[in-house]
Amino acid sequence: MNFEAFKEWFTMENIMTLIQEYRSFGPLPGILLPMLEAFFPFLPLVILVMANANAFGLWIGFLLSWSGASVGAIFVFLFFRKFGQQRFLHFLHKHPKVQKLMNWVEQHGFGPIFLLLCFPFTPSALVNIVAGLSKVSIAQYMLAVITGKMVMIFTISFVGYDLRALITQPIRTILVSVVIFILWYVGKRIEVRLNKSVKREHSRG
């Protein structure tokens, strides 16, 4: 199976089937799949969260997705905090965008991390890596991850927990599409504004 075929396999139907087949393992698959997304950001977190909400119910599905995604993000952060200064990762520090984002995160701490993690279509993997390489405190980062992921994952879970209604109720489908578009648009606008602020402060410095 090549990379493109692997990515295409991650449809809602396939993930739902996988979760149903491994229900005998309890909540483990519902936690592990969102956790893996932190390490492999090409995985569709939105679909994983919706699948959990449909397989386990709104609240349990939300809790499983939230805990898995948060733990995965914290693992990535801790990995780069511990090994980011090693020679095999030193090239990351030289990347101009990474340097600018590191300076921004160090100066503003909780705020930009929280905002970026509130929206499902912003580059959370990059945020986790940059935060790990920066000097932001572990407490600040963990608070931003836990609260930001809570907002984002509950929104996705609430929007997509009843997939049958998306088929049988066209108005609900339209509303869900509008909400997802708004989340995408607002997340991208915040990302653009933060990037502009980073460039302004970098030029002043």
Results as ranks from 00 to 15, higher is better:
Met1Asp: 14
Phe6Asn: 07
Phe10Asn: 09
Met12Arg: 15
Ile15Phe: 10
Thr17Phe: 15
Ile19Tyr: 11
Glu21Cys: 14
Phe25Arg: 13
Pro27Gln: 13
Ile31Trp: 13
Leu32Glu: 11
Pro34Ala: 04
Met35Ala: 10
Leu36His: 11
Phe40Pro: 08
Leu43Trp: 07
Pro44Leu: 06
Val46Pro: 06
Gly57Leu: 13
Gly57Met: 12
Leu58Pro: 12
Ile60Trp: 10
Phe62Glu: 08
Ser65Glu: 09
Ser67Cys: 14
Ala69Asn: 08
Ser70Gly: 00
Phe77Gln: 02
Phe79Ser: 10
Phe80Leu: 07
Phe83Tyr: 03
Gly84Arg: 04
Arg87Ile: 12
Phe88Asn: 15
His90Asp: 12
His93Ala: 08
Lys94Asn: 09
Lys94Met: 01
His95Arg: 14
Lys97Phe: 14
Gln99Leu: 10
Lys100Gln: 14
Val105Ile: 11
Glu106Pro: 03
His108Pro: 01
Gly109Arg: 00
Phe110Asp: 00
Phe110Met: 01
Leu117Trp: 03
Leu117Cys: 06
Pro120Lys: 06
Ser124Tyr: 02
Leu126Ile: 07
Leu126Asn: 08
Ile129Met: 06
Ile129Glu: 02
Leu133Pro: 02
Leu133Asn: 00
Lys135Val: 00
Ser137Gln: 00
Ala139Gln: 09
Leu143Lys: 03
Leu143Ile: 02
Ala144Asn: 06
Ile146Ala: 05
Thr147Ala: 09
Thr147Asp: 06
Gly148Val: 01
Lys149Gly: 04
Met150Phe: 05
Ile153Gly: 01
Phe154Trp: 04
Ile156Gln: 02
Phe158Ile: 00
Val159Pro: 07
Gly160Tyr: 02
Tyr161Ile: 00
Asp162Asn: 12
Ala165Met: 10
Leu166Ser: 04
Gln169Ile: 09
Thr173Gly: 15
Ser177Tyr: 11
Val179Ser: 06
Ile180Ala: 13
Ile180Met: 14
Leu183Met: 10
Tyr185Val: 14
Tyr185Asp: 11
Val186Thr: 08
Ile190Met: 11
Ile190Tyr: 11
Val192Asn: 07
Ser197Trp: 03
Glu201Gln: 15
Glu201Leu: 15
Gly205Asn: 14
